[in-house]
């Protein structure tokens, strides 16, 4: 069974936010009004943050940036607390989000130490014609809803490792009667990365690029001490 994982090389990342926006267009995250944005209600599943740009930091040090999708923790605090299993960890290690079931209690959002979960404060909307660019893909099952399908108001959403792309790749492989090949399933943010800083693959496969990079000396995980065991792995700068 595959264990999907992403590696992000911070040495190559140039904080361009291409990943953020690729994710938006792939996954139909709505634009919020400037007033909403001021409240921090933007919906970018993969945000890029400046670190120590502000006053009070060490002047001589160069600024740093962090790009942050969901960590797809192997021990995910979000999953533990969800009362209705609207978020759950799948067989292949992806932490799913079921929009049809979520009751919007936001327990997961406060439990996730990485702040990667986003709540639909209002029903998403697109102004005059912009909705035409929405991605029609959606993952369905037993009346449940995942993937880029438009989310209703009041539910939580987050990075899914572009789960629908996995389904697509798998459907293609199945149609051709074969196993899914490495490189066939690539999330949108990985595909677009301008610095070629993002890698994706199967941690279970020792030959995959992510397995190999995860062994590098530079490899680390965010909040390793929290014991969440992220499958999104970073490589240090320098």
């Amino acid at each position: 069974m595959a264990r999907w994982s992403m590696v992000i090389d911070l040495d190559k990342c140039v904080a361009c936010q291409g990943c953020s926006i690729a994710c938006r267009f792939e996954n139909n995250t709505p634009i919020v009004s400037p007033e909403e944005a001021e409240l921090g209600r933007e919906m970018l599943w993969n945000e890029v943050f400046p670190l120590r740009a502000e006053e009070g930091d060490i002047a001589s040090e160069q600024s740093r940036f962090l790009t942050r999708p969901c960590m797809h923790c192997e021990n995910p605090p979000c999953v533990k607390v969800c009362p209705v299993q609207a978020t759950f960890i799948g067989d292949e290690g992806i932490v799913h989000q079921n929009y049809a079931r979520c009751i919007g209690c936001r327990f997961c959002t406060v439990a996730c130490p990485y702040g990667v979960r986003y709540f639909n404060w209002y029903a998403p909307s697109w102004e005059e014609g912009l909705e035409q660019h929405l991605n029609p893909d959606r993952v369905m099952g037993n009346g449940d809803l995942e993937g880029p399908a438009i989310r209703p108001r009041g539910v939580v959403e987050k990075c899914t490792y572009c789960i629908h792309r996995l389904h697509k790749a798998r459907a293609r492989a199945e149609a051709e009667g074969r196993e899914i090949r490495s490189g066939e399933y690539v999330p949108a943010c990985v595909q677009t990365c301008t610095g070629k800083a993002r890698f994706f693959g199967d941690l279970e496969d020792p030959n995959s690029i992510v397995s190999q990079l995860s062994q590098e000396r530079r490899a680390f995980r965010l909040l390793e001490e929290a014991g969440t065991r992220p499958k999104t792995i970073y490589l240090e700068e320098g």
Binding site: D137, R138, V139, M140
Partner: peptide, 10 residues
Amino acid sequence: PQSAVWLETS
């Protein structure tokens, strides 16, 4: 929660 899953697209 999801035993049968499928993808819908254009």
